[in-house]
Design a protein around this nucleic acid. Sequence first.
DNA 1: TTGTAAGCGTTATCAA
DNA 2: TTGATAACGCTTACAA
Lengths: 340, 340
Amino acid sequence: MSRKGPKIQDVAVAAGVSTATVSRALSNPDLVSEKTKQAVLKAVSETGYRINRAAQNLRKRQAGAILVLLPDLGNPFFSHILSGIESVFATSDLSILIADTGGMKHDQLSGYLRDARADAVIILDGAIPRAVLNNLSEVVPDNHIVFACEWKNETDFPSVRSDNQGGAIQAVKHLYDLGHRKIGHIAGPRTNVLTKERLDGFKEAMAGFNLELDPRWMLEGGDFSLEAGAQAAKHIVEMEERPTAIFCASDLIALGLMSELHKRGINVPADMSIVGFDDLEISGRFIPSLTTVRQNRTQLGVLAATTLIGHLSGRHSAVSEGIQLVDVLLIDRESTARLN
Amino acid sequence: MSRKGPKIQDVAVAAGVSTATVSRALSNPDLVSEKTKQAVLKAVSETGYRINRAAQNLRKRQAGAILVLLPDLGNPFFSHILSGIESVFATSDLSILIADTGGMKHDQLSGYLRDARADAVIILDGAIPRAVLNNLSEVVPDNHIVFACEWKNETDFPSVRSDNQGGAIQAVKHLYDLGHRKIGHIAGPRTNVLTKERLDGFKEAMAGFNLELDPRWMLEGGDFSLEAGAQAAKHIVEMEERPTAIFCASDLIALGLMSELHKRGINVPADMSIVGFDDLEISGRFIPSLTTVRQNRTQLGVLAATTLIGHLSGRHSAVSEGIQLVDVLLIDRESTARLN
DNA sequence: TTGTAAGCGTTATCAA
DNA sequence: TTGATAACGCTTACAA
């Protein structure tokens, strides 16, 4: 909008210089003498001048925005990541656009970039169709696409992620140290990249401790939700022989599991120890509070954003290349106990 | 970005018409003959033409985006509202920009609009400084500002909100019907508009039932968080005489309260009934599951977005004016029980 | 160090 | 119903 604001021409007149000088004073102060710089700045504040982004973007052949693609905006898991991203771009003059890949047609999606609405993308959705990714690649340089949290296998886009495998290993070790030997796992949705990493970590840790992987205790959540955990609980109570501990691929699964186990008379941690993954805020206040692997979601967002800014500004610093792994930390709470 | 895409001129050549005709065929099809329209459309798909938003926005003196102002992106409460908003704008050709008012300087904030980055704003933050609001008003027409969920008192901006007062009344009635007479309240942060509405509803309902408002049982949460609830629990256990039921201004407060009460040996609902406000997903799976007033957060977002679109397109339909109240619904679960 | 002037890709006005 | 053409407000060669 901005009805009839002062334009660069007005500032130029007020400062007694040309529009080119105003432009330079504002975006390339080094190219301008101290004296005229001051004059311009004064004129800017006098006139109340604000740059017109549309004009600037048109001229510079850019969009002035980055696009964040989320698999499900309604899922609170992503809000901290988004917050981290936002905190970085708040001080830049790039706007941040968001789009939910869930309810979105593919062509609509790449249309976002084709319309030159965004200069770069941060993708939080590992399930983004390859076709869409290809479309994106046609429109933005490959290193203007960054994955955060999730990623896409067999692609080389820069990616920021938690140490999912390491987290799973910590979880199993914790249970092992508490004396548990019969350890089960509730995995995430089959096709999700995180599911595989956490499952791999689980298997690796179990093997490392020479523990048997009982297939009966390897459950599959349809997703990472509370409901998936609750469903798993129903299977578990029916088992002839139950594991004494379970590592869940997400906090929501763990919480849903505990909720349903409670209903069915199984006590956590007395009868069964539970470990989650994420460390949602509620997990520390659940009854019992949840032992879990903490992911620093804000940091994931911040890192993705700074990586992207690095690429956009042409700085290909070593740190902004390839895969950036963020450490996770096991938080020991009440849902796990020593095996009696 | 969009390196060297086809432009309207290319389409014009391909279709054998002028650029003006292409423009019209695309944005005002009625002004163009069926025949040329087809020719243009064909040329568009042949060339793979995509409009350049920056150019369009510059020419039309618009931003092509709406800005959503959230008080705290990290707070999952807002994600469903955002999701509702997004779902509406996904099919429009307006982009949605987000900004966190928490970490943001005021001038930075109104800068968003002054820079002509957004044509309109949806504000989810009732605590937005009046100065900022005034700044916004200078830049966009007043009806291009819509409040959702929260609002600002003594202003006339269109606003979409839940029936907070009605919800509080339902909550008290539920407790009353269960036989409770000693009912306490944990309010939200003192200056928040929702706090006041829910508190008013609480008082009104209590008065309606001729129940005493015991000041000892009227607590104040510093915010709507788990921690606020946990703090309140500490006060409550110290009380000589405790209420038998408590209505909390948010689910998080209620959950934090239950968590801490549990630690201190008070059983919900046997010793005390608890009602929340929001109906977060986790609330149905907490132990015990939480009786609460359900807010339709997605609908709040959808309504705010459609209202705004109505204003933007100049349609001042009756429904898009003033305050739109969204019904809430009491969900009866395990955290409330008949007084023994 | 500064100014001139030519675009960036659209849309809207005016004529035809 | 269509076409020329002048903006929209900025940046950046190129000159001075």
